[in-house]
Amino acid sequence: KELVSALYDYQEKSPREVTMKKGDILTLLNSTNKDWWKVEVNGRQGFVPAAYVKKL
């Protein structure tokens, strides 16, 4: 599985998104959309802005 690192804090703005803190390591589930990537963090799945994470 592919991992990404959070470059910035992000506070979810809808139920489809997830909150992350800078430095968090997230499991990348889907990166086909260039703007929003689906990740899993702390057992929750949702979307984060692609520009806020980088692949490890």
Rank of each mutant, 00 (worst) to 15 (best):
K1N: 12
K1I: 14
K1S: 12
K1T: 13
E2H: 12
E2T: 14
L3Y: 15
L3Q: 10
L3V: 09
L3A: 06
V4T: 05
V4I: 09
V4W: 14
V4F: 12
V4Q: 02
V4K: 01
S5W: 15
S5L: 15
S5G: 09
S5Q: 15
A6P: 02
A6G: 03
A6D: 00
A6C: 13
A6W: 01
A6E: 00
L7N: 05
L7H: 05
Y8W: 11
Y8E: 11
Y8D: 08
Y8A: 12
D9G: 06
D9Q: 03
D9A: 07
D9K: 03
D9I: 02
Y10C: 03
Y10M: 01
Y10G: 00
Q11N: 14
Q11M: 13
Q11S: 12
Q11F: 14
Q11H: 14
Q11D: 14
E12S: 15
E12K: 14
E12V: 06
K13I: 08
S14L: 08
S14I: 05
S14E: 08
S14P: 05
P15D: 14
P15L: 10
P15T: 10
R16K: 12
E17Q: 12
E17V: 05
E17M: 05
E17T: 09
E17S: 07
E17R: 04
V18C: 10
V18K: 02
V18G: 01
V18L: 15
V18W: 05
V18Q: 03
V18Y: 04
V18A: 05
V18F: 12
T19R: 06
T19E: 04
T19P: 07
T19F: 04
T19D: 04
M20N: 01
M20E: 00
M20Y: 02
K21H: 11
K21M: 11
K21F: 10
K21W: 09
K21E: 06
K21V: 10
K21D: 04
K22D: 02
K22E: 08
K22V: 09
G23M: 03
G23F: 05
G23I: 01
D24N: 06
D24G: 03
D24E: 11
D24W: 10
D24F: 04
D24L: 04
D24V: 05
I25F: 06
I25A: 04
I25S: 05
I25C: 07
L26H: 03
L26A: 10
L26D: 00
L26E: 00
T27E: 10
L28W: 01
L28K: 01
L29V: 11
L29R: 03
L29S: 02
L29N: 02
L29P: 00
L29E: 03
L29D: 01
N30R: 06
N30Y: 07
N30P: 03
N30T: 08
S31Q: 11
S31F: 06
S31V: 08
T32I: 10
T32F: 10
N33F: 08
K34M: 10
K34F: 08
K34S: 13
K34A: 13
D35R: 14
D35S: 11
D35W: 15
W36N: 02
W36T: 02
W37L: 05
K38A: 09
K38M: 15
K38D: 04
V39N: 00
V39I: 07
V39D: 00
V39M: 02
E40N: 04
E40Y: 06
V41F: 15
V41N: 12
V41D: 04
V41K: 13
V41W: 07
V41R: 12
N42E: 10
N42C: 10
N42D: 13
N42S: 09
N42R: 10
G43W: 03
G43T: 05
G43K: 05
G43Y: 04
R44W: 05
R44E: 05
Q45K: 11
Q45G: 06
Q45N: 07
Q45Y: 08
G46L: 04
G46D: 00
G46S: 02
G46E: 02
F47C: 13
F47T: 03
V48T: 01
V48N: 00
V48M: 01
V48S: 00
V48I: 09
V48H: 01
P49M: 03
P49G: 02
P49S: 02
P49W: 03
P49L: 04
P49E: 02
A50P: 05
A50I: 03
A50Q: 05
A50L: 02
A50T: 05
A50E: 03
A50G: 05
A51N: 12
A51S: 14
Y52H: 08
Y52E: 02
Y52R: 05
V53M: 05
V53W: 01
V53G: 01
V53A: 03
K54T: 14
K54F: 11
K54H: 12
K54R: 12
K55H: 11
K55S: 10
L56C: 14
L56W: 11
L56D: 08
